[in-house]
């Protein structure tokens, strides 16, 4: 079985499975990011997620199962129940919403300090860079004090989920890290 699987694996028949948790505040663009990552069916209208959605797609030889969590305040307590299963975390930041950066910071630090998320590769999308007057990824890092995060690999990339800019870069980073680990 092991040999067979290795052969199939090398040939690319069976792709490694990977569970990714996608979190972020409400209206930060998580569902839009996921919609764009899926090869099919680009929805134009995205409604606020209730609870969570599960999406599956494959990218760069990995089958991704994405838990698209709702970011609304009352559903944020659900996030921590999924940390255990996740192999990577995508954190979407709305960098045009300067007012709620403090909320982002609080939620993020709650996530980073949770015991189940230790050493999970974490990808940050500094989303909505199409809106003028946005924070740059560097400013986000400074404000969210990400430079102090040393216990896990993390990466921040500017993105625009409407056009898909920057999303591939992020997903490639995740798959690199996942293949390294496996």
């Amino acid at each position: 079985m092991g040999i067979l699987q290795k052969i199939l694996d090398a040939l690319g028949f069976i792709k490694p499975q990977c569970k990714v948790l996608c979190v972020g505040l409400d209206n930060s663009g998580k569902s839009t990011v996921i919609q764009h990552l899926k090869p099919t069916s680009h929805k134009t209208e995205v409604t606020p997620t209730v609870g969570f959605n599960v999406e599956q797609f494959s990218r760069s030889n990995i089958n991704f199962t994405v838990f698209d969590m709702s970011g609304a305040g009352k559903y944020r307590s659900l996030w921590e129940h999924y940390y255990k299963d996740a192999q990577a975390i995508i954190f979407v930041i709305d960098c045009s919403d300067k007012l709620r950066m403090c909320v982002v910071k609080e939620e993020l630090h709650a996530l980073l300090n949770h015991k189940d998320t230790k050493s999970l590769p974490t990808l940050f999308f500094a989303n909505k860079i199409d809106i003028s007057d946005h924070l740059t990824p560097v400013e986000c890092v400074q404000y969210l004090e990400l430079d102090g995060v040393k216990d896990r690999p993390w990466h921040i990339t500017p993105s625009n989920a409407l056009t898909g800019y920057g999303l591939d870069e992020g997903v490639n980073w995740i798959s690199e890290h996942l293949t390294q680990r496996s």
Binding site: R76, S77, E106
Partner: peptide, 8 residues
Amino acid sequence: AIKILSRN
């Protein structure tokens, strides 16, 4: 000043 009530 704007203050936001923390969720927790």
